[in-house]
Amino acid sequence: MSLTKADVIKIAHLARLAIDEDDIPVSLRDLSNILYFVEKMNAVDTTDIEPMAHPLAATQRLRPDQVTEGNQRTRFQAVAPQVEDGLYLVPKVIE
């Protein structure tokens, strides 16, 4: 399976990556090669094999329901570009 130029543009957009027109052919080739490699694995018979959700053969540890994190707003907001009334400000997102 190989990708088209449109696929690359769409993937870049979904990942919010700015990609130069000139770089598209390179990305197209690299991504297609990855898919080509993945396709090779399709040759292996995986019937009755449970898909892995994680490379470690371990299961999730659970945490007791306790509040352990206090208010550190001042520290967190010290690195934010812009704040007001305790809110983080971002360029307006609604149409």
């Binding site: 812009q82 007001e84 009334d85 809110l87 983080y88 400000l89 971002v90 307006k92 997102v93 609604i94």
Partner: peptide, 12 residues
């Protein structure tokens, strides 16, 4: 997200 009152910004 709060979209009002932030002069062109959204408050989060």
């Amino acid at each position: 997200s709060l979209h009002e009152d932030f002069h062109g910004f959204s408050g989060i």
